[in-house]
Amino acid sequence: MSLFQMTLWWQALILLCCILNCVESSAPSPVHQSDKYHNSFRLARSTRTRVQQLQRRYKEQQLGDGQFEDRSRQLRDLPSLSTDYYSWLNLTDWERLHGAFKDMQVYWNMLEWKRTQLEREQVTRGAAHNILPHSMKYIQLDLRDLMSQVSNQMSFMQSSWVKHTSPTARAPLNPDTGSKTVWDSRVEGYIILRDLELYLTKLARDFLLLASKAQVTQH
């Protein structure tokens, strides 16, 4: 082997080592992934606290009763909260995160719909400033941050995952507004917040499970 060929060979070897080091350093360690899931857990929990506070305020202002409860009413567009325990355990990490991303997108859209509706009513009636739409916006921002975290976690699992962290508002999910009373419309907002609180409890549980699995992988 000539000196020129030997030099090229060493240069190629050094380049390959640099590439491998970059790949290795960019891959998240189990510890790092566990920390990310714990961060998502904390955000889900703090968001749930916001939802609980808003729900009490919403029931006082819109329904006239801070203790109002009605578990019989449902909205068909909201994600199902019922989960078969064994099916839940057998979900892959990818399925768990992908499902969470889609469900949070639905809740973001539902809050956008109800928030816009409240703002329109406020303008139409010339009412004093209502804090409810503002509080809903804060929760939407929390959901957007959670979706961004989930998207980043998914990107480590599957390189083909296309990040999409900016939710897009869509048309009202319940278009038959003509047949609804003002009371029915207000109860819809309660249902959204009620189910979102329960969903965030479920989501926090998922993040804890993912964090524990990442720690087990480490050991």
Rank of each mutant, 00 (worst) to 15 (best):
1 M>H: 06
4 F>T: 09
8 L>K: 12
10 W>P: 00
12 A>Q: 10
15 L>S: 09
16 L>E: 06
16 L>F: 10
17 C>D: 05
18 C>Q: 13
19 I>A: 06
23 V>S: 13
24 E>K: 04
26 S>H: 07
33 Q>H: 04
42 R>E: 14
45 R>M: 14
46 S>G: 11
46 S>Y: 07
49 T>K: 02
50 R>F: 15
51 V>K: 06
52 Q>I: 09
53 Q>D: 14
55 Q>G: 09
58 Y>S: 05
60 E>V: 06
67 Q>M: 06
67 Q>E: 15
71 R>N: 04
71 R>C: 05
72 S>G: 04
72 S>D: 08
73 R>T: 01
74 Q>L: 05
76 R>D: 10
77 D>V: 11
83 T>R: 15
84 D>R: 07
89 L>G: 02
90 N>M: 09
90 N>E: 12
91 L>A: 02
94 W>Q: 10
94 W>M: 11
95 E>V: 00
95 E>A: 03
95 E>N: 07
96 R>K: 15
96 R>W: 12
97 L>H: 03
102 K>Q: 11
102 K>M: 08
104 M>A: 05
105 Q>G: 06
106 V>H: 03
108 W>S: 15
108 W>M: 13
108 W>D: 15
110 M>G: 06
111 L>G: 01
112 E>N: 09
112 E>V: 03
114 K>P: 04
114 K>D: 14
116 T>G: 14
117 Q>R: 07
119 E>P: 02
120 R>V: 03
121 E>L: 07
122 Q>R: 07
124 T>A: 12
126 G>F: 08
129 H>N: 03
137 K>N: 08
140 Q>K: 14
143 L>M: 09
144 R>Y: 07
145 D>A: 09
147 M>R: 10
148 S>P: 01
149 Q>V: 00
149 Q>K: 04
152 N>L: 04
152 N>H: 05
156 F>D: 14
156 F>M: 08
157 M>K: 13
158 Q>G: 09
158 Q>C: 08
159 S>E: 13
161 W>F: 13
162 V>H: 01
163 K>D: 12
163 K>P: 01
163 K>N: 07
163 K>W: 01
165 T>W: 03
169 A>E: 09
175 P>N: 12
176 D>H: 08
177 T>R: 09
178 G>P: 00
178 G>A: 14
187 V>L: 05
187 V>I: 15
189 G>L: 12
190 Y>M: 06
190 Y>E: 02
190 Y>A: 04
190 Y>Q: 03
193 L>P: 01
195 D>R: 04
198 L>F: 14
199 Y>D: 01
199 Y>C: 00
201 T>V: 11
202 K>W: 03
207 F>D: 02
208 L>W: 03
209 L>Q: 06
212 S>A: 12
214 A>W: 01
215 Q>P: 00
219 H>R: 13
